[in-house]
Design a protein around this nucleic acid. Structure first.
Lengths: 187, 187
DNA sequence: TGAATCATGTAACTGGTTACATGATTCG
DNA sequence: CGAATCATGTAACCAGTTACATGATTCA
């Protein structure tokens, strides 16, 4: 599965510009999929050529024309088919954990910073999820699909577990590091 | 951080061939970092050119010469420095969660399969971790660095949380799917 | 006044994967 | 007898990022 397909997915909830789609990626997929303008705009051009999305321009003063994209029927079918044959991979690429693995080569204060930083990021993510839950509290009628709740729940469960682990082990992890103020400051 | 750096990391525990390093990646980094021969061999060639690793050949009958790599002092320093300036990113790329997000477009039986499959993979991972814990149980003297325990503990905590969530929500998730036997089998 | 937001796009680069090519040996 | 393991590498390809280019508007 690539950015192109995810753009179809984003458009399955309604019309949008490339700019909107980037926003969409950021606020709903960010936990498990990222994409930048440099991949979204070419993707939309490609999808238009294939006839999977249709585009109409809205002139604006000063700003460049707004290109609003919409999923075509062919596009909708292509998206469903693509979903059907997507292998359900789940990959983590974590420089943070690499650093933890090699903690014995890092100064203690640095490790403490790394752990605290990560905990903070987890907290931010949880805040983000809480906001989502409030926005889409009782009302079953609003935009996000039911699967969004599952993804949020999943993210929440995993993030809480990770945060708890780091907080419990913080002292032990820091102890793995080297002493000596700020090793290797002599370079 | 790239494969090149991680190769230095692998070699920080002793000599190894490219083949060994691949093995090492698979059995110790696999949870948070992957690499294939196509990136490892060129990386080693590069590192040799830079003088960060040294290579001596061992002739073998039939098989191609074994090239045993060892970290040089420069290489060790370079690795430490690289660790020091590595931003502690932590990214997830999950087609599985994308599929959950769009569960309303998939047939129920397919979703059930996806969830079960993922749970099975989590179980495999936990098994893997349990083996590690047993191998390196009481003895503090064996090879893996202390950080390995932390990574394992982290992986364990997170994996258990994920598995529990999926098991608890399984029925609810499946219900999000479409009925109708095997949608879209008419293509 | 300067930063953020809206809005589009391209070109160069990068960091990887996949598939291929080769071939003996050992294990079940 | 066939699969897996040991062992090395390359070439073609690919998906994506980063940085650049442009520029009005709105908000603090």
């Amino acid at each position: 599965m690539d950015v192109k397909t995810l753009c179809l997915g984003a458009l399955s909830f309604g019309e949008a510009t490339g700019y909107d789609i980037k926003k969409f990626f950021e606020c709903t997929f960010s936990y498990f999929f990222v994409a930048s303008y440099g991949s979204i705009y070419p993707a939309l051009a490609d999808l238009t050529e294939k006839g999977w999305v249709a585009c109409h321009c809205e002139a604006q003063d000063g700003k460049p024309d707004k290109k609003v994209y919409a999923l075509t029927d062919t596009g909708r079918a292509a998206f469903a088919q693509e979903l059907g044959r997507t292998p359900p991979n789940h990959k983590i690429r974590s420089e943070f954990l690499v650093l933890m693995y090699f903690a014995h080569l890092l100064p203690k204060d640095k490790i403490a910073d790394l752990v605290d930083q990560r905990v903070t990021e987890f907290e931010r993510a949880l805040e983000h999820i809480r906001e989502f839950e409030q926005r889409h509290g009782g009302d079953e009628c609003s935009s996000p699909p039911p699967g969004a709740r599952i993804c949020c729940g999943y993210g929440k469960a995993v993030t809480i577990a990770a945060r708890e682990y780091l907080l419990n082990q913080r002292a032990a992890i820091v102890q793995l590091g080297t002493d000596g103020a700020d090793s290797r400051n002599w370079d």
